[in-house]
Nucleic acid binder design. Structure first.
Length: 521
RNA sequence: CGGGCUGUAGCGCAGUUUGGUAGCGCACUUCGUUCGGGUCGAAGGGGUCGCAGGUUCAAAUCCUGUCAGCCCGACCA
């Protein structure tokens, strides 16, 4: 009966994804997205089609973040996709920052033109007197609305956010990480005082950090951006920086203290308590579908996606094992029963998301599909289980063939706990990984050594986060980036990471504390 | 936007140098076989070779243009 493994004509690779992370990380990432059936490139340049498994994650992210936004007093609204070009001209730094990546709408009509061969060509007609840009972000158009809405200090604060698509004509799109069109949430608030606005900025920064940690199992480092990395037009930018498995950093969410830059540009003026006209203090903050790319790069392995249970569209997939047709009815009935029992259980306030995969395809192939999608738990039920009253439970955070045979009732009652263990395990693993690849560096020699790949032609995964003292300028930062592609990811908020005062590794000047350096996405 | 590579069936590719109107693997359909498992066998379906021009009796193959994708830069969530 037993035959040697991998003796088939079409030998399967040892891993479901080729290449592996070590072999070629960027290519591995793309293969994971595809194997998990989450998204694909579309006909439209730089834009992706998000498929149900990927969009399902986004829906959960939306729903769960929405709770936090509402809890912190914000209200959802919606503003136009098209922004008059003149709006962008109001804030110089902002305009400059986004000018090179704006899609511009110049016409409002098409005219059909019959060709000689009978086909039809559509030509733009009806030129607009003032072109529109498709929003790359909405500070300006929301600012214009705020200007209308605010008269008195009694109208403040305004706490608004919207779920929307935005467009930035990126030169190098990558599924989820950087696409020309992406989905996001953008918060925009206006306040009476700078202190209040700063409190708001930090509050949302904190919300993002907790969301990444508790929902996406990503331990991000919260901190402030340096001037060089700041949002165009902002006074302060706060970021949550995550480390992914090639040890690079990715900015997963930002919140900006905009001072009065945008209120001056948009004319958000209110009459203050002392009867004088004042400009409001504004903030903006956002996370995007990039979160999904981040979570893949943080958790996926060489067998495909690994989705944290809290954002898994299907948390438990039931795989019927039907050796002979005569077993079908009994097995399917058991699956239905199991599914409904599981759905009666709850995880973080929601019914468990359970799916029976009853497709008539090879069991092995089916099981591997769910491994590649990263469903947290797979349950098999076959005739033998029916006799014994047990089921076979497999976890995505364990080896593909690692199955546990558990009494059915117990499998159900312990499922929420099992999902939480997976969720916690992913976070612990990601945190351990980040710690393992975070070093403290005290000299430029060591710094260069850390960030220089062994093989320059085909750079291997190297480096990580470096904590080092810094007192340099934006110009110094740029020099570092030119030399090694390393940037300051943030000035960490965490005192332990920030450390004590010391000597800047670059300028030798006294530095207040350490900053986080890394290569980044 | 600069430099390099690529575009042939849903996916991955061969064929292009030396023009003669398409082939392989996987996937898909049907039948059988196997069965806690990404089985094996047989028979099938599917492509105006990225697009547009040009050269030629003849173009996937040569020429020009263009679009898209990937990798490396610059830019960015």
């Amino acid at each position: 009966m037993s035959k040697p493994q991998n003796q088939n004509k079409n030998q399967k690779p040892q891993t479901a994804i080729t290449p592996t992370r070590d072999e070629n990380f960027p290519e591995w990432y793309q293969q994971v997205v595809r194997a998990a059936d989450m998204a694909e490139n579309s006909e439209t340049r730089g834009c992706m089609v998000i498929k149900p498994w990927g969009y399902g994650m986004w829906e959960l992210i939306q729903r769960q973040l929405d709770v936090y936004f509402k809890e912190t007093g914000h209200k959802n609204a919606y503003f136009p996709l098209l922004i008059p070009v003149s709006y962008l001209e109001k804030e110089a730094e902002h305009a400059e920052g986004f000018a090179t990546e704006c899609a511009v709408v110049t016409h409002h009509r098409l005219e059909a033109e019959k060709q000689e061969d009978g086909s039809v060509k559509m030509r733009p007609a009806g030129k607009l007197t003032e072109p529109y840009v498709i929003r790359p972000t909405s500070e300006t158009i929301i600012g214009a609305a705020f200007a209308r809405w605010v008269q008195s200090y009694r109208d403040l604060p305004l706490l608004i956010y919207q779920w929307a698509n935005v467009m930035r004509w990126e030169m190098r799109p990558r599924l989820f990480l950087r696409t020309a069109e992406f989905l996001w949430q953008e918060g925009h608030t206006a306040h009476e005082t700078p202190e209040e606005a700063m409190t708001e900025t930090r509050l949302m920064h904190d919300v993002y950090e907790k969301f990444l940690r508790d929902h996406l199992a990503i331990p991000a480092i919260p901190g402030e951006k340096t001037e060089a990395e700041r949002f165009p037009g902002a006074l302060n930018t706060f970021t949550v920086e995550a480390m992914v498995q090639d040890r690079k950093a990715i900015q997963a969410g930002t919140s900006h203290f905009l001072g009065q830059n945008f209120s001056k540009a948009s004319g958000i003026v209110f009459q203050g308590r002392d009867n004088t006209d004042e400009h409001a203090w504004t903030t903006s903050w956002g996370v995007s579908t990039r979160l999904i790319g981040t979570l893949l790069m943080a958790h996926a392995d060489d067998d495909g996606a690994v989705v944290p249970p809290r954002v898994a569209p299907t948390q438990v997939v039931i795989l019927p094992v039907i050796p002979k047709d005569e077993h079908r009815e009994a097995v399917m009935a058991a699956c239905e029963k199991l599914a409904s029992d599981l759905k009666a259980e709850s995880f973080h306030g929601d019914a468990l998301r359970v799916e029976i995969d009853s497709r008539d395809i090879q069991g092995g192939a089916k099981s591997w599909e769910w491994i590649k999608k990263g469903a947290p738990v797979r349950i098999e039920i076959g005739p033998r289980d029916l006799e014994k009253g047990s089921v076979a439970v497999a976890r995505r955070d364990k080896a593909p063939r690692d199955k546990e045979f558990i009494d059915t009732a117990e499998a159900v009652s312990s499922m929420a706990d099992r999902l939480q263990k997976i969720q916690d395990g992913l976070l612990a693993r990601a945190l351990a990984f980040r710690k393992e690849h975070t070093v403290e560096i005290k000299s430029m020699d060591k710094f260069r050594e850390y960030f220089t790949p062994q093989d320059a032609d085909k750079p291997e995964i190297h480096g990580g986060f470096a904590l080092a003292h810094w007192a340099g300028t934006a110009v110094d930062e740029e020099a570092l980036q030119k030399e090694m592609k390393v940037t300051i990811r943030c000035v960490p908020s965490d005192e332990a990471l920030r450390g004590d005062a010391g000597t800047c590794i670059y300028t030798g000047q006294p530095a207040e504390g350490r900053v986080v350096f890394a290569k980044s996405y």
